[in-house]
Design a protein around this nucleic acid. Structure first.
Lengths: 224, 224
DNA sequence: ACAAAAGTGTTGACTTTACACCCATGG
DNA sequence: CCATGGGTGTAAAGTCAACACTTTTGT
């Protein structure tokens, strides 16, 4: 391999995280406003250049912390984005991650060295985004929808447990679909993603609801 | 973005394809033997450096053609591999693709500018591989298993159609599992991946079997 | 006692599994 | 006419969808 070969010189790697939350039945995404060129003044997903001394996930988490202050969360790699001209500066390939957290549990930095703003946007009110981030966001949402029925990705949204009515609202928000209460319970318990605790808690009515929590590990289902 | 910043200078992108075939009930993978450093003399998956003027998939297909002579096939991106030291030359992130073809329909080049050999290896008889290709191969096989029950990825293994007994043997080879003939038929037809043709063909016995073909597009199932 | 939401069970339709016999063709 | 594998049906178990009433608590 010839490091100076023009055919593949000056390449770089982006690590981009699409971070979701759900607030009162609305699915939202964290966006930041760029303070530098390229795409100065545009909203984008959090992310940036991968450093040489860090793994992909480490880099994505560092970028998230640097540009929003958020740390200590879990993310999952889902796809690479590599269109030739996706970055105007040089050839960049983006590795996409998704995550979901409770926005009330974090304090996001409104301004950092590289950002002039940061906020949660409902997924049906997304402003035009820089780079190819609209495409990344679209694919990230599809991936989130797949993950919530086969992984414990929602654990990070409900670290202290969740009641079934609350969880149903969350599924409805993410999948954009309503469920029958009785059938939802049967279905979700059958998926083996959550387990009972001894606690109860109030969600909306006066009657307390049982609290469940996401399991730490989910076993794979049989493929066929 | 400062193109000369040491933190993220000298990065590159690999595009790596794990190409499968199934021969007489045995799942195999195409490997090539390296003729250059690093990993001179080692077996690896096909792939190499992405060029600046090509998209990810284009690059993976070009590498495949250059190093094995195989062209005109379909591949699917599935995961990125980015451990810090996965390449000894410089920081490289690999974008992994999978594909599956009928090995009888292609003539693989035994030697090229960069390879001193190429061959199909049964997945339980894989030699030690260079780079992190053992990890990529492992993940690729898992992805293949997921894909065959929800996509038409096997279309490229059977471009002219396939009989159900033949298809059953293929599923059994890939999933490493036996099925009841009658139940296999019901299950596979329910998946809506294949459709009837008017033809029949002989597979193993004397009685001709109906020929099915994979649909060109598969519609997504409801998530929940 | 009333309001608000939590919790629960049944029926019919469909899907899945286990299992055994007849059919078409070549030799 | 026999050998080889291809093709099919059924019954029992389990899963899924639709649907309405009772329970707990706060006020």
């Amino acid at each position: 391999m010839d490091v100076k070969n023009k055919l593949y010189k000056n390449q770089g790697i982006h690590v981009i995280t699409t971070l979701f939350t759900v607030e009162q039945g609305i699915t939202k995404v964290l966006l930041i406003k760029r303070k530098n060129e390229p795409f100065l003044g545009d909203w984008v997903l959090t992310g940036g250049a991968l450093y040489n001394n860090e793994d992909l996930e480490t880099g994505a988490l560092r970028e998230l912390k640097e540009k929003t202050g958020i740390e200590g969360i879990e993310i999952k790699q889902f796809k690479a984005f590599g269109r030739v001209n996706r970055s105007p500066v040089m050839r960049m390939v983006a590795i996409g991650f998704i995550g979901i957290i409770d926005s009330k549990r974090v304090n996001i930095l409104r301004e950092t060295e590289n950002t002039s703003n940061a906020d949660w946007f409902p997924i049906n009110k997304i402003p035009p985004l820089g780079y190819d981030h609209e495409e990344i966001l679209y694919d990230a949402l599809i991936e989130l929808r797949k993950q919530i029925v086969k992984s414990n990705i929602l654990k990070s949204l409900f670290p202290d447990g969740v009641t079934l009515p609350e969880l149903q609202k969350t599924y409805e928000a993410i999948l954009n679909k309503k469920f029958d209460r009785r059938n939802f319970r049967k279905k979700i318990l059958n998926l083996d993603l959550i387990e009972d605790t001894n606690r109860s808690d109030k969600f909306e009515g006066n009657k307390p609801a049982k609290v469940y929590k996401f399991k730490n590990t989910i076993e794979d289902k049989d493929i066929f």
